[in-house]
Write a protein that binds this DNA or RNA. Structure first.
Lengths: 233, 233
DNA sequence: AAGTGGTCTAGACCACCTT
DNA sequence: AGGTGGTCTAGACCACTTG
């Protein structure tokens, strides 16, 4: 136990969190102003602010200017996930990475793709299907659409040796990201490419990015059976 | 456009981020010290620190005392997910929530459960199987193990009317959380409870919590076919 | 041992939002 | 219109970690 008279922001955070779990501040309640808490606890307002920032990020409280700080009425479990570049993911497992381009074309976006981007009408995009391999076995099958307007350079990239996944992540910043996870039964073509029995359950990761309001790319990454996603830390 | 001479931390963050994407600071590179950047950009060191804090949280850079700040060598996509209480989730979709207790017992933990907690040997835990309903149809099937040592009160809770899910989230803070997502084929008992065809692909959410080093609870939540998880914001 | 990020303070001003 | 959180500054000290 520290005898330091100074309070660290983590101590302040823990104290406030304890009060929330104590029901001193019940769900929906308004917390005291930062300044009042600072005075009560004996620290600077900035320190309380730092603690609140953390609690707010964790989803425990909600803060509004003038409105004050409120305990969130319904607690949620909030967790962070990292989706690495597929090559890196394979290599970090100590396996040999491989990559096969299956298809590369320019097509009109079907309704499902328009919906992902929120596009009002169909446009031409580049479509890339590719298979990522781990130790020469199928690992992830990706079906990707790339907006040529925001990514004209992609037309020049040799996608037989470098995956669009990697090229985009390294060269194209995004300002908005949408990630979705769901399960599906691997059907004919997908089961064939993944070399897995028909109707196997597979985890699908859908990732869509924009720069400003402009679409960049959307990809449906179908993993092989047994694939797991784990939260960070 | 603001003419203010003062730089906001978001401007500083955007500038640094732009340089990273520019390759001014390439992956793996060391960035200037906060203080040097502050002087170059004309702001306080604290402001650079705030910007770096954000970039660090986003997974773009890595910071170490004495080691300095480095651009992460391999970019990752980092996203946050919220897992609400099941009742809340159903109600927010505008559906009627229902709940059925299937089983409640005290059992020795099998190896799979010991592994989730990292337990060296089997102990007795409370096991609860329950079904969450949405508009009277199966929604999520949960199979939960609760450590009685850290949660003796659970033995007194009436789990026929209130789900363990809800009781624990509201009363038991945790200090560590592990979340996993994966897909599986619904088999006999699970398919029966979820009222879904055998071998249907379903998304599974596995959630394990500890308080300090002590296990609290672990749950395997099997969702119904079509269930999706979306990133926040 | 020393360098670098992390934190704390005190005070000022700003910006958003509710009333 | 005014209250509350958000940010910025300047300076000091701390704590981690690497050379």
């Amino acid at each position: 136990m520290t005898i330091d008279s100074r309070l660290s922001w983590t101590q302040v955070r823990d104290e406030i969190r304890a009060r929330i779990l104590n029901r001193t501040y019940a769900p929906g309640d308004k917390l005291p102003r930062d300044e009042d808490l600072a005075q009560e606890l004996g620290c600077a307002r900035t320190t309380v602010h730092r603690a609140m920032q953390d609690l707010s990020l964790a989803g425990l409280v909600e803060r509004k200017r003038k409105g004050g700080t409120h305990v969130k009425a319904d607690p949620v479990t909030r967790a962070t996930f990292d989706i690495p570049i597929t090559r890196r993911e394979v290599e970090q497992r100590g396996s040999k990475y491989g990559y096969q381009l299956i298809q590369r074309s320019v097509e009109l976006t079907p309704p499902a793709i328009m919906a992902r981007f929120g596009l009002p009408k169909a446009i031409k995009m580049m479509r890339v299907k590719a298979l990522h391999l781990s130790d020469n076995r199928p690992f992830i099958l990706e079906d990707r659409w790339i907006d040529i307007r925001s990514n004209p350079e992609i037309l020049e990239v040799d996608l037989t040796t470098q995956s669009a996944n990697e090229w985009l992540v390294l060269h194209k910043p995004y300002s908005r990201l949408d990630l979705r996870f769901y399960a599906m039964n691997a059907t004919g073509e997908i089961a064939k490419h993944l070399d897995t029995p028909d109707t196997s359950a597979v985890l699908v990761i859908e990732r869509t990015t924009w720069i400003g309001a402009e679409p960049i790319t959307t990809v449906q990454a179908v993993t092989t059976p047994g694939y797991q996603l784990s939260s960070v830390r």
